[in-house]
Design a protein around this nucleic acid. Structure first.
Lengths: 194, 194
DNA sequence: TCTCATAGAATGAACGTTCAATCAATAGAA
DNA sequence: TTCTATTGATTGAACGTTCATTCTATGAGA
């Protein structure tokens, strides 16, 4: 990778950062290209050099954020762990990642609840979270988790993590105790209790 | 109430319906006043006769939807019921209401995850769901529910109901069995299991 | 020289909002 | 009853702004 493309990546990253922050603060409306450019310290023209359109920028940003999120979940993951320990690790990774990236959390919430979401297939969603999906499927097959579709278990867990971290951004403190109790909450939701 | 104001309420309701549908379909961006007017079969000017601005329209619409949602939850509610039965009733009301009003569900999701949400205080939120809040607080005080802040329990339940009904709009079938299992999911999440 | 990166002015469409002009209904006076 | 004044509801064209996007020019490697 040469000097030019490193610099190019800098701009790209700056545009991503500016966009995610602006959308988190002011929503999809309220994030014009001119302001994105200003915040990223590039010109409007430069954005169009890297992205076909505003929609293209938002889609690529979404993939980027989701990919890094999915990766963050797997830190310290090990198939050999006790199921609950493994889930706790997953939960902690999830909450920590969302809590320390509030703009990304807000962006995801807005994106996933907007009409944009319908442009991404469930397949891609499953592919990004492949390893987590396998973990869940395994749990269902063994009667450890509730007999629900994988997607329900997955979306339920994500919804809870999102709810908890959203509350953090408006005043809730997430210490170790809170992490433990909320993890129990999420686990109890999906575990079969047989 | 005279003939004029009945007709006036018709227009108001038509504007509300058009707005909620359009925003559910195309998001906050993608719902211009001109299109709202067209769908509501009124002129643009008429909207401004009833609402100060687009923001005002959206805020008032939000209050309207949340109020009717909170009311729907209480159908058949009775303090004398067994706690789980009472929760089941609450859950069913919640899921049925959201599932049969998909546009309102989509609107709420988008609103609550957007910067608009920050303009509504938590107080108002609690006031709207007053009776439900009391039920939860009672459950916490009696050790029946997990020792978490009321708002966490409440938002967790709402998040789960939203997740489930969102999945319905993309293919999941919610029959009685699904209603029962997902209710168990939500209850297990918040119950203390002691 | 040629290519890619960058800037920022220019463009045209779309937006929220305003406004002068009607229309419909009611009430009171004659 | 009939005429008139008043009010509120309704319209859609017009306005000024802002937006996403394009275009042209410039600069820096290769």
């Amino acid at each position: 990778m040469n000097v030019q493309s490193i610099e190019a990546d800098d701009k790209r990253a700056a545009i991503f950062t500016a966009t995610v922050e602006l959308i988190a603060e002011k929503g999809f409306h309220g994030a014009p290209m001119s302001e994105i450019a200003q915040r990223a310290k590039v010109s409007v023209g430069t954005i169009y050099h890297y992205f076909k359109s505003k929609d293209d920028l938002i889609m690529k940003l979404h993939v980027d954020i989701k990919t890094r999120f999915a990766e963050a979940l797997l830190v310290g993951d090990d198939e050999g762990m006790e199921p609950y320990q493994r889930f706790y690790n997953l939960w902690r990774n999830m909450v920590k990642h969302l809590a320390s990236n509030p703009a990304e959390r807000a962006f995801i919430s807005q994106f996933d609840n907007s009409p944009y979401e319908k442009t991404c297939g469930t397949d891609q969603h499953f592919a990004t979270f492949a390893r987590t999906v396998v973990f869940i499927q395994y749990g269902i097959d063994n009667g450890m988790l509730k007999p629900l579709p994988v997607i329900v278990i997955m979306e339920a867990t994500l919804a809870l993590a999102n709810a908890v971290t959203r509350l953090e951004s408006i005043g809730l403190t997430i210490d170790d105790e809170m992490l433990k109790t909320t993890c129990r909450m999420a686990w109890d939701a999906i575990a079969s209790h047989e």
